[in-house]
Simulated assay, not measured.
Amino acid sequence: MRQLKPYLVGHQEFAALYGVEPGMVGQWLSPSRRALDPATAIVVSGVRYWPLGFAARYGTTTPRFKQVNVRVKERLIAEQGEGWEANLGDELPPIVGQQEIIQIFHLPAQGNLATTIATGRFPHRDWLLSGSPLWLLDTVLDAVSALRESARSLPWETDEAVIAALRNGTYDGPGSKVLTRGRHVAKGL
Rank of each mutant, 00 (worst) to 15 (best):
K73W: 02
K73H: 09
K73I: 04
E74C: 01
E74N: 05
R75I: 11
R75N: 05
L76H: 08
L76W: 10
A78K: 13
A78F: 01
Q80G: 10
Q80A: 13
Q80S: 09
G81M: 08
G83P: 04
W84R: 12
A86R: 14
A86E: 14
N87P: 00
L88W: 15
D90T: 15
E91R: 14
L92S: 11
P93S: 15
P93Q: 15
P94N: 14
I95L: 10
V96G: 08
G97V: 00
G97D: 00
G97N: 07
Q98I: 04
Q98A: 14
Q99Y: 00
E100Y: 02
E100Q: 15
E100K: 09
I101F: 02
I101S: 10
I102L: 12
I102Q: 13
I104L: 09
I104D: 09
I104M: 09
L107Q: 09
L107N: 07
P108M: 06
A109R: 12
A109F: 03
Q110G: 11
Q110A: 08
G111S: 12
G111E: 12
N112I: 09
T115Y: 13
T116A: 13
T116E: 12
T116P: 02
T119R: 15
G120I: 03
R121S: 13
R121V: 07
F122T: 07
P123A: 10
H124E: 10
D126F: 01
W127P: 03
L128S: 14
L128D: 06
L128A: 09
L129T: 11
L129I: 04
L129D: 07
S130W: 05
S130K: 07
S130V: 02
G131M: 06
G131D: 09
L134Y: 01
L134C: 00
W135R: 06
W135N: 07
L136M: 15
D138Y: 01
T139S: 13
T139Q: 00
V140Y: 04
V140G: 06
L141K: 10
D142I: 01
D142V: 03
D142Y: 07
A143N: 11
S145L: 03
S145D: 05
A146W: 04
E149L: 06
E149F: 03
E149N: 08
S150F: 03
S150A: 15
S150L: 08
R152C: 02
R152T: 12
R152D: 10
R152N: 11
S153L: 06
S153G: 04
S153E: 05
L154P: 02
L154G: 03
P155S: 12
P155A: 08
E157F: 03
E157I: 03
D159H: 14
D159A: 05
D159S: 14
E160V: 04
E160M: 09
A161D: 13
A161L: 07
A161M: 06
A161S: 08
A161C: 00
V162D: 12
V162C: 12
I163D: 13
I163K: 12
A164T: 12
A165M: 08
L166H: 10
R167N: 07
R167V: 00
N168P: 03
N168K: 14
N168E: 10
G169W: 00
T170H: 08
T170P: 04
T170I: 04
T170D: 11
Y171N: 06
D172F: 11
D172M: 05
